[in-house]
Each structure stands twice: as C-alpha cells, then as structure tokens.
Design a protein around this nucleic acid. Structure first.
Lengths: 143, 143
DNA sequence: CTAGCTGCAAAGAGTTTGCAACTGT
DNA sequence: ACAGTTGCAAACTCTTTGCAGCTAG
C-alpha cells in the first residue's frame, strides 16, 4: 500500500510507526484544512474507532515537536493543526463563518524582518492573523 | 483620593464600583506590562488579600468586554492583559527571556488592510506577534 | 431597598500523565 | 526481547458557575 506523505516523513525521522500513528498521519495527510483536536478525533474514529483521545493528543504533540505538523491557535484558544509541509503562509479568518483563508505576501515577510532588526532582534518566528468580514458590493464600489 | 485612569473609565461606563473593582482597576492602571491572571492575582493580593481569584476572573472579563482592557495570548496560551487605552501596537517577544517589546509600524497596518481587501474582506481585527532573539554584535556587524 | 457583586467550593473544558498491557523493530 | 507506545481513568490547569450573603447606589 502507498504511504501517505506524512507517513513517509515519519519514517524519515525514524519514528516508530504504530497502527495508530499511521492512521493519524494518513488522516492529516489528506486534511487540507485546520482541524482542532476534536475534529481530528472524529475523523480518526471514522477509520479506527478504537484509537483513544490520549493517543491523539500524544501523537499530535509528537508530530508538532518533530515539525511534521504546525499548531495554531486562532482567537478562540483552541489548538488547530495543519500539515507543516505546506509552504509558509498566514491566515485570514472570516469573523462570520469562521472560514479560514490562507495567504502569503512577501512584503509582510520583509517588513517583519526589518522591524525585528530595527528593535535589535533576529526574527525567529512570527504569527500573523487577520480577522475580516466579507466586503459587500457597496463597499467594493466605494473603494 | 485621586482616581486612577481605569477607575475613571469604569465610572464613565457606568459600572458599579465595588472595593474589589477599584483595587483591580488601580493595580492594572499602574501596570505597564502584560500580566497574566496569576500575576494580576499576586499584585492584587499585595493590596487586598481577601479578593478572590473568581472575582479577578469575572472582573477582567468584564473589563475586557467593556474594552477597558485588552486580552492577549502569546504562544503559551495563557491570557495576558493590558490597559486598552494605550495606543495600537504589536509585540515582539524575546524567545530567550520572554521580555515583551511593543512596536508600531504604519506600513504593516496599511499592508494588512490591503491584503484583506484583495482577498475580498474588510479588516476588522488582526494579530501580529514577532518572536526573536537579540542580535549579537557579530550579526549586527554583518548586516 | 434591591439588583448586582462577592467568596467559596464545586463543576467544566481541554489536556496531560501513571500504569499495566501490548507491539514494532 | 524490550524500549517505546497504547488505552484507560485519574489528575491537572485554567476558567466558569451556583448559591447564599453582602453592598453600592
């Protein structure tokens, strides 16, 4: 059987591949959104209902420490995960629907580096989230 | 006795001013950092050890809802508060010491507006945090 | 006077952990 | 074989809440 992208990454890192980890890796490999633990648990249960929540917590933490997954916390304080292999980007969260839109802008990146440097720091990480509401036609016209 | 800045704000908003709220408002008025609840509790206890943690939670939430305080969560997921009357700014967190440096940059603000608009959204909020390590002399020279 | 606030202790949400049984390598 | 992993339930941390008594306006 074909290995999922995340399973392959796990192997490269020399992680012991248990049934549970395989399932978790596969489920997250095909996830293109930003599920929280509860959501991950639900998806896992569709595949193997015997996997416990504790294992999911442990595995997601492990994957995060191994930089296989990225952990986010958007506003609500609930941990959400996404595949770390996707290229660097930020998130715009729709305040109404909660929908998450990914974006990347080079100018922001450069500016952040610059700001950090001017404060006497080397930038080692950053977090940027925009919260917005859809532009109405009216507002679009005005602008 | 002179009212603290935050006490005044509370009165303007028509909040009932209990002893506890006064103490909490005063302690936060003189705080120029970003204390978490535990830290706020400690400071409160120096002034009036009988004020309960529950009251502090309730009051900080109230103050936040009234836009008297701003709540932040930097990386660690612990709520931190700061006086909302300070002007808009972002934070650079020193990864080594945890020290928090405030900064403001107009170009970032403009860029964010622009990005949101280009995605079809009106920007209603944002969060930006930089994480850095102090530049060493070496690195300073190189740059 | 009384609506709203407080302190206490108990409950809740989300997450971690101790331990005995189990399993990948 | 055996170090590392799992499932379970209990523990933990941070935060909220029910309730009886208290207090600002």
């Amino acid at each position: 059987m074909r290995l999922s992208h995340l399973e392959k990454t796990c192997q490269e890192k020399g992680l012991r591949m248990t049934t549970q980890r395989r399932v978790i890796a596969r489920v997250l490999s095909v996830s293109e959104d930003h599920p929280n633990i509860e959501e991950v648990y639900k998806r896992i249960q569709q595949v193997d209902p015997k996997i416990s929540l504790a294992t999911i917590y442990r595995t997601l933490r492990l994957f995060q420490e191994e930089h296989i997954l990225k952990r986010h916390e958007f506003g609500d304080g609930i941990a959400r995960y996404e595949n770390a292999s996707v290229e660097h980007h930020h998130h715009l969260i729709d305040k109404g629907t909660g929908q998450i839109i990914e974006f990347y802008d080079d100018r922001i990146e450069t500016l952040q580096q610059e700001i950090a440097k001017s404060l006497g720091y080397e930038l080692v990480g950053h977090r940027l989230e925009l919260y917005g509401v859809p532009l109405t036609k009216d507002k679009k016209k005005k602008s």
